[in-house]
Computed example of a mutant assay.
Amino acid sequence: MSDCDFLCTFHQSISKSELLCEGCGGSEDEGKRLQRREKNRVAAQKSRKRQTQRADLLHQTCELLEQRNRKLRSEVDSLSEEQRLLTEALRAHEPFCPIMHCSFASSTSCRLQQEDTLSRSVRGREPL
């Protein structure tokens, strides 16, 4: 190995952005090319880092949304169960409810009947 070969290998191992030994046939264009490659390598590293950060952020956002979705799903299940229980209670109450037997068309007459029933029950409780 010649001294020039050794120096060129040494220069390349230190930094690729360093200029090549002039005795090896390296030129300024080669040095600029190496500098450009080094800049490109650094830019690519930065780009990969940004892409990884973006992916991490998306992953965190996804986890938060899934957690919120589970919470909302639990709320919906709870409300559905409450609705089912209330509907069941209403169905059990319907046969005994005088209001439910009134039709919407005769709502005023039904209201009058209710008021009449109420006034009779109140009068029946009054002391003589």
Rank of each mutant, 00 (worst) to 15 (best):
C102G: 08
S47I: 05
F104T: 07
V42Y: 06
Q45E: 14
V122C: 04
V42I: 15
I99F: 14
A89V: 06
K71L: 11
L118F: 00
C24G: 02
N40Y: 09
S106L: 13
C102S: 04
V42H: 04
S121P: 00
T108F: 12
A44W: 01
H93I: 03
F10L: 14
L20K: 07
C97S: 14
E126H: 05
N40T: 14
S74N: 13
V42A: 04
R123I: 11
G26K: 01
D29E: 13
Q60N: 10
E63G: 04
K39P: 00
S47G: 06
R54C: 06
L34W: 08
L112W: 13
L65Q: 15
F6G: 02
E88T: 08
Q114T: 03
R36F: 01
S2P: 03
S17L: 01
C8H: 08
V76T: 07
Q60I: 15
L86P: 00
L58R: 12
S27N: 11
E30C: 12
S119T: 15
R73P: 00
Q51H: 10
R70E: 14
S47D: 15
E75S: 08
D56L: 15
R70Y: 07
C24W: 03
R41G: 02
L79G: 01
E38Y: 09
C110Y: 05
F6V: 10
K49C: 07
F104Y: 05
C62K: 14
A43P: 02
T117F: 04
R54Q: 14
E66P: 02
Q51P: 04
S47P: 00
L57F: 09
S17I: 03
A55M: 15
E88H: 05
S119A: 13
L112C: 08
Q67W: 13
R123T: 08
S27F: 09
V42R: 13
P127L: 14
H93P: 00
I14E: 06
S47R: 12
R84W: 10
G25M: 15
R68E: 15
T52C: 05
I14C: 04
M1W: 07
S121Q: 02
R48D: 09
K32P: 00
C24F: 10
R36P: 01
V122A: 04
S103P: 03
E22T: 13
T52Y: 13
L128T: 09
D56H: 13
L57Y: 11
R125W: 11
M100K: 09
L86K: 05
L112P: 01
R48A: 12
S78D: 11
I14D: 02
L86M: 12
P127H: 10
R70A: 09
E81F: 06
C97K: 00
F6H: 07
K16E: 01
Q35N: 07
A44S: 11
